[in-house]
Every structure is written in C-alpha cells, then in structure tokens.
Design a protein around this nucleic acid. Structure first.
Lengths: 108, 108
DNA sequence: GTTATTACTATATCAGCCGTAGTACTTTGC
DNA sequence: GCAAAGTACTACGGCTGATATAGTAATAAC
C-alpha cells in the first residue's frame, strides 16, 4: 500500500499527465488512474477534487463545462502552458528524488 | 529541489538506513545524508529530530546516551527489530511507488 | 419508483515538514 | 582569557495536502 505521506506530491503529476493530450474530468481521471496502475493505487475522490482546485488556482489547469448529460454536469479541465511547465519541473524533481532515495535503499 | 511534500514519507527510510549497521545520533545522521546525496538533499534539523521522536514512540528506534563530550551530550539511537521490519515494508512501498509513478512520467 | 451510476461539493481533522528561536556545552583562534 | 564557531539539541507554532464523512443532483436501468 502507498501511504498518504508517500503519495503526497505526486497527485499533481498523475492528473497533469492524464491531461497532456486531451481535456478530461474527475470521474474519468479517477478511472484512468485505477486502470493504469492495475488498481494498485486508487485516488480518493476528495484528494482528486481538491487537487483540481489547487491546480486551477495556480493556473496549471483551466475548467470548462461539458454538454453531456450522463448524470450530473461535468466539469472538464485542460492543461495550460504554465501547467505543462510545472509538469516538467515535477518530472525533474521525480528524477532527483529517485536518485536521492536510492542511496538509502538496501534490500535485506 | 525536492519539495517537502515529496520528501514526506521518506525521512524514516533515510534515518533507519543509516542506523542499520550501527547506532548514530542527530548531527552525524544529518551530515551523512548531506554527503550521501552530494548536498542535493539536506534534512532540516527540526524534521530530523521530530522524526526521531516519532520513530521512538513507535518503538522503531531506541535512544541511549553517549559518554563523549564534544559539545552537548549526545543522544544515540539504535534500530529495533520492529524498526527493521518497518524499514523493509517501507522499501516495498518505495518499489511500488516507483512502479506506479513511472506510469505517469513522460519526458517531453 | 427504487437502486445504481455518474459527478461532484462542503467541512473538518490530522500528520508531518518547516521556520524561528533559544539553550548548552566545547573547541579554536587571537 | 575572551569571542566566535561548531556541536547537539528542544520548544512552539504555522502551513499544506491527504482523508473521513456527509450530502447534493442528475440520469439510466430494472
């Protein structure tokens, strides 16, 4: 299991990755995370939606409404140029983190 | 730079790794983390010492006093069997995390 | 016409990292 | 023989982001 302390800081990466190629919305992103990770990580709804607000406040994503009616009205999100730049720095941070943490790993 | 949100959850691993072979104390562990990571990660003192209390409360480490007098009296820590077990599960968690996060990485 | 599914929103709690500040003892330099 | 630097912590409070819990609202399926 991945604890909340470990996952903290990676939710942004996951969401932005799934918006790289096309806009999407909460429910779909949630499902994609589940399937992409083979159910090994399931993002909590509240985590996901609070990440959306945070990302939008920082202008990393933009919301717009969809016209579909398969239930409640959907809020779609698209990534902004600032969001793409942020994604890139997060990837660099991930590379560095892997490098750093690997020094403290010993498979006993 | 590694953000505090990303590092969260790995401080335990770093500290326990450095206690695997012999007991140590705050100042030395701090220095070892700096040198092991080539200064790319410097653990804040407050982060380190609060991690010590947390780990001791959970019986993952045990404290004892040293006899040296190169400044203020040192508190040494040694890892416990429970701490070793905890370290192992954290390593498994790290392996899983790498696997999961890698699905969301695209070097653009 | 109740249940399931989709699609959120609101509110509050908690853990852990970090900033700031202070204490205390020893060693080194002049 | 005194100041500054280094060693080794402790206390306290703030902030962020994950999570629990609960509720709303619309459509589809049976």
């Amino acid at each position: 299991m991945i604890s909340s302390d470990v996952i903290r800081g990676y939710t942004d990466i996951m969401i932005l990755y799934l918006l790289l190629d096309q806009p999407s919305y909460g429910y779909e992103i949630s499902k994609q995370i589940r399937t992409l990770t083979d159910e090994r990580y399931v993002m909590k709804e509240t985590t996901l939606y609070s990440a959306f607000s945070r990302l939008e406040e920082n202008d990393y994503i933009q919301s717009f409404f969809g016209t579909e009616t398969n239930g409640k009205r959907r809020t779609y999100y698209r990534i902004t140029p600032a969001g793409l730049a942020y994604y890139k720095t997060k990837i660099e941070e991930w590379d560095l983190t892997q490098d750093v943490i690997s020094k403290f790993i010993r498979h006993i």
